[in-house]
Design a protein around this nucleic acid. Structure first.
Length: 287
DNA sequence: ACAGGATCCTGGGGGC
DNA sequence: TGCCCCCAGGATCCTG
């Protein structure tokens, strides 16, 4: 569920609630593991720690402690919220961390694709990001590097956008939205994008993500921010989830196809299909 | 190198 | 009401 804008919203919500707070009690509320098994050595390491910062990297949340780091990935259905401790636990609440101001940080995840983990130092966190091949933040994506990355791949641009090693934080919703914004067909090959297209797409990613952040992210089903509130950007989406509905730009029905294993939404008029260049095609024939 | 499928899970929605 | 099938914001692993 959560892509960069949702994760960023959670981080912004949690930052003032967690920074300067101490983790007084670490509670594990389920016996089942998330994507990464829980380690019994972690509670003693976490208990009593002071939160010094809360930050985001790609779709990862990093809670910096006075000693060690709590690293969280929300997967598809993860929720990280601060609530009063007398609030009843929702289903699939896996962890609760009592804070020294009487509040409680809770992690909930029905599908368990998420991850909550402890890392002793910055190097260990960096090693995790290196292992997963985490690429540059979209807002720091340098134009030359981006163009080089695209030129070096024949993959469909939609697949490239979903690849966290090329650009970190873009997922299925914002890949489709950015391609619409840049007027590029999702199955265009990376290496076939023109220089203007590449630059348009780089800027479109930033524009779309920033707009989504301003709206507190998109809530399709499960997503809530760190304060438990849903996002509102789903109402602003141009193509994602709008298959069959008129394009907001030209009224052509939005199409949906399966690409890179994911539902991919686009406007067939605004995002024309790349011309297939084969030796036998009239377009490619000389003269 | 890349596409496609299966996998890890639960839950909601549609069709019958 | 139930049942069955498909789908879902992610990421990884395997096959061809």
């Amino acid at each position: 569920m959560p892509e960069l804008p949702e994760v960023e919203t959670v981080v912004r919500d949690l930052r003032p609630k967690l920074t300067g707070r101490r983790l007084v009690v670490v509670r594990r509320l389920t016996a089942v593991d998330l994507r990464q098994p829980w380690n019994v050595l972690w509670p003693p390491r976490l208990t009593g720690r002071l939160v010094s910062a809360v930050r985001r990297r790609g779709k990862w949340i990093v809670v910096e402690l006075d000693r060690g780091f709590l690293v969280i990935h929300l997967g598809m259905t993860g929720q990280l919220v601060v609530k009063p401790p007398d609030t009843p636990f929702a289903d699939h609440t896996h962890f609760a961390f009592d804070l020294d101001d009487g509040q409680q940080l809770r992690f909930r995840d029905s599908r368990r694709f998420g991850l909550v983990s402890y890392y002793p130092d910055e190097a260990a966190v960096q090693a995790l990001f290196d292992e997963t091949g985490l690429g540059p933040e979209p807002f720091e994506l340098d134009a030359g590097g981006w163009r080089t990355a695209l030129a070096g791949t024949a993959r469909a641009i939609k697949a490239v956008l979903l690849d966290q090693s090329v650009v970190a934080g873009v997922g299925n919703i914002y890949a489709d939205e950015a391609l619409f914004e840049a007027k590029i067909h999702p199955s265009s090959r990376g290496c076939d994008l023109t220089r203007p297209q590449a630059e348009r797409l780089r800027k479109a990613i930033v524009t779309v993500l920033q707009r989504a952040i301003e709206h507190g992210g998109s809530t399709i089903r499960d997503y809530v921010g760190g304060d438990g509130q849903a996002g509102t950007f789903q109402a602003e989406l141009r193509v994602y989830g709008r298959d069959g509905e008129p394009c907001r730009r030209c009224r052509t029905p939005v199409a949906v196809v399966r690409l890179a294993g994911r539902s991919t939404h686009f406007c067939p008029t605004c995002q024309p299909a790349p011309v297939a260049v084969t030796p036998s095609s009239p377009e490619a024939a000389p003269g």
